[in-house]
C-alpha cells in the first residue's frame, strides 16, 4: 500500500502529539514534586502553577496535584528552577531504573 492514499499533493502537516517521538526518552534526570512543599498541593487551592507556566514542553498539568507527563518531559529542569518553594527536585534517571 503506497502513500498516495494520504491525499496530499504538497507538504501539508496536521497537529499531533509526540511529533519528535517520545521525547521523555531524552531525559537524564526527572522532576519530582514534593507535595509538602508545593503551594497548590498544600493549600489545595489553584495558586502559583509557575512550573506549569514555564514548562517549554507543555508536560505539566494545571491541576491539583500537578501531574508531569513523563512520556514527553525532557528533563530540562526549568520547573525546578522557577519553583518558589523549591518543591521540585531533579532526580537522576538512574534511580528509576528497575
Amino acid at each position: 500500500m503506497g502513500t498516495r492514499d494520504c491525499g496530499h499533493i504538497c507538504g501539508e502537516s496536521s497537529p499531533g502529539i509526540g511529533e519528535g517521538g517520545k521525547t521523555g526518552e531524552w531525559r537524564n534526570s526527572r522532576p519530582v514534586i514534593d507535595e509538602d512543599k508545593c503551594t497548590p498541593a498544600r493549600k489545595n487551592k489553584p495558586t502559583c502553577f509557575l512550573c506549569w507556566l514555564f514548562c517549554p514542553e507543555v508536560t505539566i498539568s494545571k491541576t491539583i496535584p500537578l501531574r508531569i507527563d513523563l512520556e514527553y518531559c525532557k528533563g530540562c529542569g526549568i520547573c525546578a528552577e522557577v519553583c518558589p518553594t523549591r518543591a521540585i527536585a531533579m532526580v537522576d534517571e538512574e534511580k528509576f531504573l528497575c
Binding site: M1, G2, T3, R4, D5, C6, H8, I9, C10, G11, S13, S14, P15, G16, I17
Partner: peptide, 14 residues
C-alpha cells in the same frame, strides 16, 4: 505516518 496512523509521503513521493 501521521497522528492518525495514515502513512504519508516521504520527500520523494511528494
Amino acid at each position: 505516518a501521521n497522528a492518525e496512523g495514515v502513512l504519508c509521503h516521504g520527500y520523494m513521493e511528494i
